[in-house]
Design a protein around this nucleic acid. Structure first.
Lengths: 130, 130
DNA sequence: ATGTAGACTTGCATATTGCAAGTGACTCAT
DNA sequence: ATGAGTCACTTGCAATATGCAAGTCTACAT
């Protein structure tokens, strides 16, 4: 079995469409959001209020890693436990999520206001690998 | 039959997650992009290089309209033909798509550079209804 | 009458999602 | 030294969504 990570064939060279080929689903950007707010372990992602199914979480972590958006590394042996972090490529999604959060807050009644630290942050401020 | 437009139950009140409840799929933002670059008719969307299947196009147009992101109106009778346009809510997605386009261009090899007019535009500049 | 165009709908196969339960490695309390 | 618990997943399977091809309906064009 090829471990279900295949090279993505982009639908077009449009940067919007190509980005959506990597991130255009209900869960990927939720995981990226969690990493931006400091979550790093599998359990942390599971505990988010959206309630991601565990098989989808495992699949998305693999995909995001395969696409170079996050990195996985063991932070302890015995038993081996992993943590995840954004790469620079992943941290660069901050402006996208900032704008998406602003849009949601403005147009979706009942959605929270994004915290100021989040809106004022820059990609380099985020916790990230390397 | 209830015409397959149901009221969305948001996964959480996080503005990122709630936005993705409306837009988190491979096609919705591609249609929004097309409207931003001036496309307005069903056929225009079909002809985009990504090649959206027609059943998905019809479904997404219905959903986006139901969520108040686009509007549909007949521009001629006999035979009746429709055109679509962004609402203000839809036009407000411009900063999201601008950032997504910048990210894609920076991190996805082979993706085009977004045109300057697109990067410099503001939501109010876009063709929109009302 | 025949052909073409626009805006869809329908049928059906494949792929993705979601839910529940299970697994394996280890730690900790009794 | 069991037994229970945690973490990071995997597996099975049903429900839903996506993708492809073809068909429909109305109207205009020849």
């Amino acid at each position: 079995m090829s471990k279900e990570v295949d090279v993505p064939a982009f639908r077009s060279q449009c940067p919007v469409a190509a980005s959506l080929d990597l991130l255009g689903d209900k869960w990927s950007l939720v995981i990226v959001r969690d990493l931006m707010i400091g979550k790093r372990k599998y359990k942390d992602f599971q505990d988010s209020p959206e309630g991601i199914p565990t098989n989808i979480l495992a699949n998305r972590l693999r995909k995001l890693e395969g696409d170079g958006i996050i990195e996985k590394r063991p932070y302890q042996e015995k038993p081996v436990r992993y943590e995840y972090a954004l790469t620079r490529k992943g941290a660069d999604l901050l402006p996208v999520l900032q704008q998406l959060a602003l849009w949601g807050h403005k147009h979706i009644p009942g959605s929270w206001s994004p915290p100021d630290w989040f809106l004022n942050a820059k990609p380099g401020d985020l916790p990230q690998e390397k």
